[in-house]
Nucleic acid binder design. Structure first.
Lengths: 148, 148
DNA sequence: GAAGAAATGTAGCATAGGCTACATTTTTGA
DNA sequence: TCAAAAATGTAGCCTATGCTACATTTCTTC
């Protein structure tokens, strides 16, 4: 009695399967990218990257970092020893560099667009994980010649 | 023995607390926005929105939709009755409209940037949840006069 | 108006990513 | 050197989001 006519087994469906699947995949990678990026920066800034540093960086407990790092290790991005610091694998380093590059491009793009630096930084963090190569290249071109 | 000198209780830390806290909050809202947007569209297209429609739309099982909808209900975005269709609350409708507007702006912006429509659509879905009001306004302006 | 199909609901499981409390190991400093 | 502090690890709990398998309700159709 509550519901009524339109059967709607028609139309609409399936339009955007890939996009949501992609969204979920993106989310799975996002943390990994953020972590390797942070680890890479910490390693450059202070030679060593500890769980505590990451906990402070991401404003989460060391326990959370611990388990995230365990996943990163499982997935081949980092190496660790018990009670030891976190290091990047070759793959981890490459991912970190790629992520940072993407971040830089998005950031400079936003700044070129006229966004204030602080906002640009925040937005870039959110956006960088969701731009395709095509869009990234367009952003790059725009930064080079904004007037087109 | 594994680790060495740099104490590093100095520097670095805390730089970006807010941003990661924000990232986590964003993720919490993202699904809600995607759902109310989809529900709103379905309601306009076919008068009724059922769990099955959403399952097809997001390419997940109806069970997943069920529990997500339960959360949306708990949070005041939708209403449902057992075995009945999904409806939006006033708040849900407003959120849907706002989300769609944001989506439109990002999409048109990307297209103006020269991104192919298909890619633009995918990227817009990823980006729309992460742009600040400031950036959104800049995108809007850009769409209006691309050459600046 | 019932039988079969479709939709919805429930139980129970998994993973990711949070947490606190407590245990262990390493580092530091008097 | 050795005790306290800091860092790391472990146990166990939570929520969000996925799933399959099975139960129930509603819709369709003959």
């Amino acid at each position: 009695m509550t519901k009524s006519k339109p059967t709607a087994k028609t139309g609409v469906k399936k339009i955007s399967t890939n996009r949501h699947v992609r969204t979920r995949r993106d989310h799975a990678t996002e943390l990994a990218e953020d972590y390797v990026e942070a680890i890479d920066e910490l390693l450059q800034a202070q030679e060593i990257c500890r769980v505590t540093d990451l906990a402070a960086r991401f404003a989460v407990s060391h326990v959370t970092v611990n388990r995230t790092v365990a996943r990163l290790k499982r997935d081949g991005w980092v190496t660790t020893q018990p009670y030891g610091p976190v290091e990047l694998t070759e793959a981890g380093r490459m991912l970190a560099r790629a992520s940072r590059q993407r971040h830089e491009i998005v950031l400079r793009f936003l700044i070129t667009l006229g966004i204030r630096e602080q906002t640009a930084n925040i937005d870039a963090e959110g956006i960088e994980h969701h731009v395709s190569e095509e869009t990234l290249r367009a952003m790059q071109r725009f930064v080079e010649k904004p007037g087109k």
